[in-house]
């Protein structure tokens, strides 16, 4: 990714070519845990977007000041600081959502996707591109969580955003963890296919992390 990449390119990269979940295969563990309902997936995506942007900004601004030997501990401190801010804000202002996802919010600290962008991009780039990269990656994450939870809630509960379309539960397995693997696997395959078909990629995803 060049330094002068435009916001559009970065967002396109975040959603498609370098999507943290479908292409880079990062942070799959929390992805499967929270995506059984569209609302949960969406809120988690928003929280990650916020944390990713703030972390990228902070690290990019401080990158000359941070000693390379202790950059990872400092990145972790910055990430956990921002996650704690999100956690406290949600506990006060979005209580209904917090009750359902409070546990997962704290897990954002350990998201490989956030640390990966901090190390690979923000620590080497100016503030503005880092900000855009944060937006691109965050939107990509949000997009991935929404699309996974869209299919899981629709197929598993027969509802979307809590509104039921059918009284029965068509494919209950989709809201259970097993269904999470199915949904992520099939969608990952689909995005690899898009990459091969339209962007001339090799179709291989990056290294996996949790």
């Amino acid at each position: 990714m060049s330094k002068r990449a435009s916001l559009g390119t970065l967002i396109r990269n975040g959603i498609l070519l370098e999507n943290p979940i479908f292409r880079l295969a990062l942070s799959l563990c929390p992805t499967i845990a929270v995506t059984n309902k569209l609302r949960n997936g969406f809120l988690m995506g928003l929280a990650v977007l916020f944390v990713q942007v703030m972390v990228n900004l902070t690290i990019s601004a401080l990158r000359k000041f941070i000693h390379p030997r202790i950059r990872l501990p400092i990145f972790m401190l910055i990430i956990s600081g921002w996650v704690t801010v999100v956690d406290m804000l949600m506990a006060a202002y979005a209580r209904a959502a917090y009750k359902e996802m409070g546990l997962y919010i704290e897990l954002i600290v350990a998201f490989a996707s956030i640390l990966a962008r901090a190390e690979l991009f923000a620590s080497k780039n100016e503030v503005v591109p880092s900000f855009m990269d944060g937006i691109g990656q965050g939107v990509g994450f949000l997009f991935a969580l929404c699309i996974i939870s869209f299919f899981r809630e629709l197929l598993g509960m027969g509802s979307l955003w809590g509104h039921a379309f059918v009284s029965s539960k068509p494919l209950l397995i989709m809201v259970l963890p097993t269904g999470g693997f199915f949904a992520v696997g099939i969608l990952m395959g689909f995005f690899n296919w898009i990459d091969m078909k339209f962007f001339g990629g090799s179709g291989a995803s990056g290294a996996a992390g949790h």
Binding site: T84, M88, L89, A91, A92, Y93
Partner: peptide, 9 residues
């Protein structure tokens, strides 16, 4: 942030 949010919570 804590000082601001805790009373609300």
């Amino acid at each position: 942030v804590y000082a601001k949010t805790e009373p609300v919570k």
